[in-house]
């Protein structure tokens, strides 16, 4: 029995501690937004946030997430279905083509922007260097990350004003 928090909710389920977290999420919880592109930590499609930090869920054993907090792509949009500014920016800037890398990209972006809403180019590249994309050529992804940072800053400014 493993207990952890997933997308803000307490979860408890039967899983072997040596099972991979990607399988626990996809098969155990039906959260299929987390993708498997290589199963070896080399592509980033399976990226989730563990206590706010991006990790490869294909390398992560379930025993390691006990009592910790996980965020998957399903936990990014708000409950009412409204997209997160990062998701909006990815669509507006054309950063999504086939979309298989997208969940991982969005999560790596979130981890970056949670710390810094106005990252330098090098910081964006570093933050996304573990997420491969074969479709976009990455240019539009960089634009989307910048745009998302701007929008998040606006949001927090507005909340500050309110």
């Amino acid at each position: 029995m493993i207990r952890f928090k997933c997308n803000g909710k307490a979860v408890q389920l039967e899983a072997e501690p040596e099972a991979r977290v990607i399988d626990v999420l996809r098969d155990g919880l039906g959260l299929t937004g987390t993708k498997e592109g290589c199963g070896r930590g080399e592509c980033g499609a399976c990226t989730i946030l563990l206590d706010g930090k991006p990790v490869n869920s294909c390398l992560l054993l379930a025993g390691k997430i006990a009592d910790r907090e996980i965020t998957t792509i399903e936990g990014i949009a708000s409950e009412d279905g409204a997209l997160h500014p990062i998701q909006e920016a990815f669509l507006d800037k054309g950063a999504v083509q086939c979309g298989f890398c997208t969940p991982g990209m969005v999560l790596s972006t979130k981890a970056l922007l949670d710390e810094n809403e106005t990252p330098e180019l090098e910081e964006i590249e570093e933050a996304l260097s573990g997420n491969l994309c074969r479709c976009t050529g990455y240019g539009k992804i960089v634009e989307a990350v910048r745009e998302a940072g701007q929008r998040l800053m606006h949001e927090s400014d507005q909340q500050g004003d309110a």
Binding site: R26, L31, T32, G33, T34, K35, E36, T72, I73, E74, I76, A77, L83, Q87, F90, L91, D92, G94, V96, C98, G99, F100, T102, P103, V106
Partner: peptide, 19 residues
């Protein structure tokens, strides 16, 4: 114009064959 089928992709709801 942004992708007409983009919503499912950015939210993780799109069903790929493995899903």
């Amino acid at each position: 114009i942004r992708k007409v089928d983009g919503f499912e992709l950015v939210t993780g709801r799109a069903k790929f064959a493995g899903d």
